[in-house]
Design a protein around this nucleic acid. Structure first.
Lengths: 201, 201
DNA sequence: GGCGATATTGTGGATATCCACTACCCGCGC
DNA sequence: GCGCGGGTAGTGGATATCCACAATATCGCC
């Protein structure tokens, strides 16, 4: 597992060095690539931290790289660096979920602040993401019948009603109910509800 | 209660007319103001629809108007119209919750599409907002004790545990519990949990 | 002083849930 | 054939929740 890192992608050697130095001065480690393709080649889903992408690069642009990463379910926050006057791209990127969009020449402190925020965001995302993953694994581990019963429980139905609807004995519902609680690692319907309420809706 | 409407604020007479005509051709009613101050004077919290704001106006700018509206808890989606090259403002506005940010000259169809989306968003927001308002009113209607008991219920505690912690009889907890369910208009702890899970966290 | 809201408690019974022990049936894979 | 996972089901008891009926006490307000 890699440590949180600012991942810089820019084809301007001087800019990469300047960024790395700036971030280092604020206590942030970074790693740099000189083109989008190189980054994609090294990309791994367990990378942690944030991305700082230059928009204009010779081959693949920062925006195209962003699209590729979205397709790969990359959850790292992305900060774009851009020249002047690219409002439509900025708007589009932010709506797609980019973390920020800074116009060159940017203020050093501002960029560093944004990177710090982005790193914090990533840490939050990871924590929430793990919980979600775990919960979904547990959900997937329920049998068909158990899922049906769970759904009914979440609808607030009593065991005898559920038994009636599924046309099985109340005792059987109790068994499924207990299995649901056990597999979902909760001890009550309330806990179950709260757990599932955290899933993306 | 006013009907959903596109609220146009632009100090360019020709632009207002063009916008109104464009929207009308797509079946969208609109009302127009020639300056931010005039709109603020007419603004009412129960206005429904969306806003289309020109950024550059003689006195108060669209951005300043947006800030005023945010302070007034205005929930209508805002679409900004802007000249070229205002990336920082666009980014800032979107992060504050603006719905969109279009650069002039914009494509007529695109703008109309965005307005339609914004109107739909407003309708959604209203529906959710009403539920939230109602729920919060009900929450505020709970007595101190009832809120304490509710909190404990949501923590999954059994009545006897709650009684122990609050140092009261179990019977009293039952009474408070019943009051909570009654006042919140739910019939079980599960329903209560689901209701509260919809509140902004 | 009475009235209403709030908080408190009791009794007793109807329901519901939780749980241990037990058991049968079916389909699938080794 | 036998084990295993999954679904089904009964008995019986321990707990918990829900609720009707009833009562006491405090506090603020008209």
């Amino acid at each position: 597992m890699s440590a949180p890192l600012a991942h810089l992608v820019d084809d301007d050697d001087a800019m990469r060095d300047a960024l790395a130095w700036l971030l280092r001065s604020r206590g942030i480690d970074s790693r740099a690539w000189n083109c989008a393709e190189a980054f994609l080649g090294d990309y791994r889903a367990d990378m942690r931290g944030c991305l700082v992408l230059d928009i204009r690069m010779r081959a693949m642009t920062g925006l195209e790289l962003f699209d590729h990463l979205l397709a790969l379910d990359c959850a790292m926050p992305v900060i774009f660096l851009t020249g002047h006057g690219e409002v439509p791209q900025a708007v589009k990127s932010l709506k797609k979920g980019a973390f920020d969009f800074l116009e060159k020449p940017f203020d050093d402190n501002e960029l560093a602040d944004r990177v710090i925020e982005a790193l914090a965001r990533d840490t939050d995302n990871r924590a929430r993401g793990q919980l979600i993953d775990q919960t979904q694994k547990r959900l997937a581990n329920l049998t068909q019948r158990e899922q049906e019963v769970m759904k009914a429980i979440l609808a607030g139905k009593m065991n005898k009603v559920i038994a009636d609807e599924l046309d099985i004995a109340m005792r059987t519902v109790e068994v499924h109910r207990a299995h649901v609680f056990e597999k979902m690692a909760v001890r009550s319907a309330v806990e179950l509800t709260q757990l599932l309420a955290q899933l993306p809706r």
